[in-house]
Write a protein that binds this DNA or RNA. Structure first.
Lengths: 196, 196
DNA sequence: GTCCCTCCCTAACGAACGTTAGGTATGCTG
DNA sequence: CAGCATACCTAACGTTCGTTAGGGAGGGAC
């Protein structure tokens, strides 16, 4: 029977994601993860090669879920640049706060990861960011983006604001938050002035 | 003569800020800082009480310099909500990349800091953020902010995007970056549509 | 009943780290 | 010259952590 194995492995990974998210990677100990899982520290090595490999699995699972949320959101939205970008904002924020600890852990811990682990996660991450760049490039080529705005800079600006929410947002009305962010990103925070 | 003392203390703090920024707080060792300063690890304790107290000093110095940059930028700009916000964006980004490692270190390491250190830095940090909230609230009361946008949310959105730059921006044309960010924050990334 | 594979445990190793006690050289002070 | 404070060193202590070697219980296979 392999169900127990899968259970323990999955449980360890989920607990690790929560602790990495809450305490940071380096300050999280295998002994702490094991204790919360009702297991001894040494037993982790039956399921994983090392602490780094746990992080690697978590970062991979996290970006995978975020990407899935994005693809799903894009498919359900209007097929025009504006609707796609707004849907992407909703999907990304939804993924961070409604899809378990893996997604938020990816965003928060990625930059603290050892370079080798980081390099492996970067592959999938680049593909995800490329989707955003594609969305914004489509907005640009269809003449919807402001002339002085490059899609690459816009992507970094927007994802920076979105990902920073994990430092302050207390899960609540995510749709309202996404609406406000979409409004600010698309139309700006200020009301245009006709004269002056 | 106390010049040697001040020199070494200052040098240690600068090196520590650089290493905290590059490797993170926990992964930076006192032995590494001491080595780069041409000193032995134990000697650090002549100048500082602990590793935590070094971080505390750095975080304080960092937010102080960022705040000074902001105040300076606001004083030199037009005294209207729009100009003030644009100047603030330029000042904040300028502080992160042109005022040494302390400012960038504050932004990057703050969220990794031990809770006690974090609590002390939070006092000064709250005051800095209150300045931003004041700017945006003035924009709101003078009718320049979009109705559905709350100043508090706008501040978190904008500072999130600004602070995230330390993860990707390679010091170059900061003014151009600030211009693009200001354009996106104020007017939005999209061109308004008159019909549809 | 015997074998073997799965899954977890005990117990320890070795390294790295923050920190400290005590010593030493230097130079100013009286 | 004696005395003292400054600035740094040496050498270690104690702890924590990732990791590993080896063992054992349990159940399915034959």
């Amino acid at each position: 029977m392999t169900s127990t194995l899968i259970d323990t492995r999955t449980r360890l990974l989920g607990i690790a994601a929560e602790q990495f998210l809450a305490r940071g990677y380096v300050e999280t100990t295998l002994r702490g993860i094991a204790a919360e899982a009702g297991v001894k520290a040494g037993s982790i090595y039956y399921h994983f090669d090392s602490k780094d490999s746990m992080l690697e699995a978590i970062l991979g699972e996290g970006i995978e879920r975020i990407a899935a949320s994005l693809e799903s959101g894009l498919a359900d939205a209007g097929q025009n640049p504006l609707d796609q970008v707004v849907a992407a904002i909703h999907a990304h924020l939804g993924a961070l706060f409604e899809h378990g600890a893996f997604t938020a852990c990816h965003v928060k811990v990625f930059h603290q990861a050892p370079s080798e682990v980081k390099a492996k996660a970067t592959v999938r991450r680049d593909a995800y960011e490329a989707t955003w760049t594609r969305l914004l490039t489509e907005a640009e080529t269809s003449g919807r983006l402001r002339p002085m705005i490059e899609p690459g800079i816009a992507r970094l600006y927007l994802l920076g604001a979105l990902n920073a929410t994990i430092e302050w947002f207390t899960p609540g009305d995510i749709a309202a938050l996404a609406d406000a962010f979409a409004e600010m990103f698309v139309n700006g925070a200020f009301i245009p002035r006709w004269k002056e």
